[in-house]
């Protein structure tokens, strides 16, 4: 009975947040004398209205799914990894480096090598914060934020200095053997999305059906109890952080190999930070993350189309996002209020 109710609220709560968020957005739109229904309709059309728009939505969702999965895994393990942006940049840069440096490789091997290197880079970058926490008790929020800056400045230096091509802050193009194949012809959609969805499923299996997943969640629930139960906390913290970073690094690698084909100084608009919201909205559940990432990506892709037609700034979508996250956050107090009332 109780678990049935819980399942129901898992879907209901984000849905309520979405509806509240849209309402808040509508109020803003009415203030600017725009018809909210028209705006929302255009956002819907521009994100799912045709094969082209769907492909663009999936392109935008790919890095959010991957990095969001990474964060969700970390959160489940009780680690608030704010460093996805840095891990993503490190992964992206390494993928680009392997992409244009390693020549004469067969395509499949080249891609696997580049993506593997991206994962490893992201994992090590994050594990550094995990190690600091496990060994020295440095809070991961502080260390990952600081590591973000270090990653941003290092990659910026590398792309403006030793690895720039021409006089712009970008690396040379990756070789064609490292480019991810396209999923749909005449679009920019690569097989990166398939990879992201597969990993979402694997993460779900990992968390729900393996010993490692169980241990990870146990540490997340109550680390001292887990330690008492014989789980090696230090090992778990470093591994969880590493896995979290590997997924974020992969997000960067897929973005480079699948879409940009070279590393640009400013290619990421903050996917790492957006994925925090994605993980929260998805309730740290891998399948929830997929839906949350798709929602964010659809809103952004749709907003571009809406902007073209109505000349309304795409900032409206940021307001929507913020409102949705806000309502997700206060939903806890909402739940609390409901149970209190029932007791009375």
């Amino acid at each position: 009975m109780e678990s049935k109710e819980k399942k129901w609220t898992i879907i209901l709560n984000p849905l309520l947040a979405l509806i509240f968020g849209l309402t808040v957005g509508a109020i803003f739109l009415i203030f600017t004398k725009k018809n909210p229904f028209q705006v929302y309709l255009l956002i819907l059309q521009g994100s799912l209205g045709s094969k082209y728009f769907i492909s663009e939505t999936l392109i935008k969702a790919t890095p959010l799914i991957l990095a969001g999965l990474g964060l969700a895994v970390g959160f489940r393990g009780g680690l608030f990894n704010i460093g996805a942006e840095g891990q993503l940049l490190v992964g992206a840069f390494i993928a680009a480096l392997v992409g244009f440096k390693a020549s004469h490789l067969p395509p499949l091997f080249h891609i696997l090598l580049a993506l593997g290197a991206a994962c490893l880079g992201g994992a090590l970058w994050a594990a550094l914060a995990g190690w600091l926490k496990a060994k020295r008790g440095v809070h991961e929020v502080i260390s990952t934020i600081m590591l973000n800056y270090i990653a941003i400045y290092i990659t910026n230096y590398l792309v403006r200095g030793p690895f720039k091509s021409g006089y712009l802050p970008k690396t040379p193009l990756i070789l064609s053997s490292a480019k991810l194949p396209l999923l749909l012809p005449n679009t920019r959609l690569s097989i990166g999305i398939v990879l992201a969805l597969t990993l979402a499923y694997l993460m779900y299996r990992l968390l729900e059906q393996t010993v490692f997943g169980y241990e990870l969640k146990a540490v997340g629930f109550n680390s001292q109890a887990a330690e008492y139960a014989g789980i090696n906390q230090i090992r778990m913290i470093i591994l969880t952080m590493g896995l979290s970073g590997a997924l974020a690094g992969l997000a960067g690698g897929v973005e480079i190999l699948g879409l940009h084909h070279r590393f640009y100084g400013q290619f990421s608009p903050g996917y790492g930070f957006d994925s925090i919201a994605v993980a929260l909205l998805g309730k740290n559940n891998p399948l929830g993350v997929v839906f949350a990432a798709l929602l964010f990506a659809a809103m952004r892709t749709g907003a571009m189309y809406m902007q073209r037609i109505m000349q309304v700034s795409t900032d409206i979508v940021l307001i929507l996002q913020a409102a949705i996250i806000f309502f997700i956050a206060i939903e806890f107090s909402f739940k609390f209020w409901m149970t209190q009332r029932r007791k009375v």
């Binding site: 392109i59 973005e255 940009h260 640009y264 608009p269 952004r300 571009m304 902007q307 073209r308 000349q311």
Partner: peptide
């Protein structure tokens, strides 16, 4: 005249 503002680099081609 119209303007399309890009949010991220990935928007350049579609815009």
């Amino acid at each position: 005249a119209k303007v399309i503002e890009s949010r991220e680099m990935a928007d350049y081609v579609p815009n």
